[in-house]
């Protein structure tokens, strides 16, 4: 459909600049425009409180831990509270790989299937502005984990909490590793209001979302 491409571009050029140059005459030299930050919402409270307020406002929940040793007790408490079996699939990261699971747990590291009930991941970042978790796809972090299970557990290190969404872009630019296939901003559990505008959690993605905030001391 190269013809369509040329037609569309020629029509745009003709309208914008009145020229009828062929495609090759205009070379694009990125970046056309330097990234510049637009207006951002502001708030009074500290960023952690803002994150928690926003997260709880969209039916997410949170537990606070101060060392990686507390991950297993925090997860055990959450799953038992909701009567969820202690089976889970987890992603990989230095924290996740270092967890010493008790014998009560059945833990696998792989991508998700439609039958998995509970998943544990570690977020690349959290966003105080919106209460969002940010997950990047990759060998250690398959995207299916974020969407297939009923219960979504996610560890967020305090140092990875950014103030605004733009903080994520800034970090990605600094790392210079290019974008992954998928960047998911996840804000609360899956929801729908398609039946009589009534909000119902757990449409196609997780029914529950729980953040484990790790404040390293």
């Amino acid at each position: 459909m190269n013809k369509a491409r040329e037609t569309i571009l020629a029509r745009i050029r003709h309208t914008l600049r009145g020229d009828d140059k062929t495609l090759n005459d205009v070379a694009v030299k990125p970046p056309l425009r330097q990234p510049s930050c637009g207006p951002q919402p502001s708030w009074q409270e500290d960023d952690v409180s803002r994150f928690i307020n926003k997260l709880e406002g969209v039916a997410g929940s949170i537990s606070h831990i101060s060392s990686t040793d507390e991950v297993v007790p925090a997860i055990t408490a959450y799953l038992q509270q909701h009567d969820i079996p202690l089976n889970l699939v987890n992603a990989r990261s230095s924290i996740l790989d270092g967890i010493a699971w008790s014998d009560d747990f059945m833990v696998e590291q792989r991508k998700a299937t439609g039958a998995d009930t509970t998943v544990l991941t570690e977020a690349y970042a959290g966003v105080a502005e919106t209460g969002s978790l940010v997950l990047l796809s990759g060998a250690d972090s398959p995207t299916s984990l974020n969407f297939l299970p009923d219960n979504y557990l996610c560890i967020l290190k305090r140092e990875n909490l950014v103030r605004h969404i733009e903080g994520v872009w800034q970090r990605l630019r600094q790392e210079q590793t290019g974008l992954p296939r998928a960047i998911n901003f996840i804000t609360g559990p899956s929801r729908t209001a398609d039946v009589e505008q009534t909000i119902q959690l757990g449409a196609h993605g997780p029914r529950r979302l729980h953040v484990i905030l790790l404040e390293q001391i």
């Binding site: 969209v58 792989r110 991508k111 796809s137 995207t143 296939r181 960047i183 998911n184 804000t187």
Partner: peptide, 28 residues
């Protein structure tokens, strides 16, 4: 649209799955 500050999922897709990715489409 709905009065939400952000929707539950806002996703940025860039290309097909990378060589070492465990999931994602082969073609984009």
């Amino acid at each position: 649209a709905t009065g939400q500050e952000i929707t539950s999922y806002t996703s940025f897709f860039t290309g097909p799955k990378r060589e070492t990715d465990l999931d994602g489409p082969d073609h984009f």
